[in-house]
Amino acid sequence: MKFEKSPYFEKLKPYKLELPFGNYYLCPNFFIGELFEGVHFDWEKTEILVKEIIKFYGEFKPIAFISNRINSYSVDPQNWIKIVQKYNILVASAIVAYNNSNYINASLEKHFAKKSIKRCLSLSEAIGWVESLEEFN
């Protein structure tokens, strides 16, 4: 389910960040990413995104990330390691997988990440998990 079509969109009233490779929805303690079909999310795109995220939240605010995988695209799993090494802004991430292939890819990415990654089957599950993180309560 697209975030904009979910009941959470009206409730959270996020800032929408539109980038050439996807849309991002910036909420108080987390942001949701929806990459476009066929994108390869490499380090160059990651740095563009992270710079925008830091511009919005600041350098020191702990935040979480939800990858809402409504489209088919590829991700360089090394990005997870590099983000922690260079920026260290994420406290945790959730990946919403809508099919078996996405779930398997999320499992692979989980092995590369230094921070917690939760694999979820719905946007609701991901948002609930992120909102319950001790860093935000």
Rank of each mutant, 00 (worst) to 15 (best):
Y25T: 01
V84G: 14
H111E: 15
K61N: 07
E18C: 10
Y8H: 12
V91C: 12
Y98R: 05
E109A: 04
F9H: 10
S6Y: 05
L35D: 00
E135L: 13
R119V: 15
D42N: 11
K114A: 11
F9L: 10
S132G: 13
I54T: 01
W43H: 09
Y98I: 07
C120L: 02
P20M: 01
I89D: 07
I54Q: 06
L19W: 03
N79K: 02
E4M: 11
V84W: 15
L12C: 11
K82A: 12
V96E: 01
Y98H: 08
V96S: 01
R69V: 00
Y24E: 00
L35V: 04
P28N: 09
E4G: 10
E37K: 06
N68E: 02
H111N: 15
A97V: 04
S101T: 15
L49Q: 04
R69I: 00
H40F: 12
E10Y: 15
W43N: 08
P7D: 10
G58P: 00
Y73R: 03
L133S: 07
H111C: 15
E125M: 09
E44A: 14
I63E: 00
S93C: 09
E52Q: 09
V50K: 02
S74C: 09
A113W: 05
F31S: 02
Q85I: 13
Y103S: 11
I54S: 01
E47H: 09
Y57M: 06
G38K: 02
S124Q: 14
L49S: 03
L19M: 01
E18G: 09
F41T: 02
F9Y: 12
S132D: 13
K11A: 13
A92Q: 09
S93M: 08
K82D: 13
E18N: 10
S101I: 14
Y73W: 04
G128N: 15
